[in-house]
Amino acid sequence: MVSRLKNTSKLSNLINGWVENRLDDEDYITLTDYFKSRPLLKTFAEQSKGGKQVLRNAYSVTAADDFEEKLARRIAVEKNDESVSNHPNL
């Protein structure tokens, strides 16, 4: 099992899965066994999980109520500029 995890790509996948709680039973057991002999790796994975949770719980930034209105005005100005510059008499 341990030799299987010497492939860093596989290990990275397993840690991603562990952090995101989406490992199947077999992979979960493989990784938690591996953690026993690699305490620093376990610390790293736990830190990673903590960082993810902080972001997931972070407050959400949303658009202002008049965002669409302001965007529509900018688009209208741009269209107007375009039609002026494409005017045959100019």
């Binding site: 996948n13 790293f44 830190q47 999980k49 960082g51 902080v54």
Partner: peptide, 18 residues
């Protein structure tokens, strides 16, 4: 692979910074 590795390391670094 780079994306996954950076995500792991970034999350960990973020938690450390916090």
């Amino acid at each position: 692979g780079t994306v996954k590795s950076r995500i792991n390391r970034g999350r960990s670094q973020l938690q450390t910074l916090l």
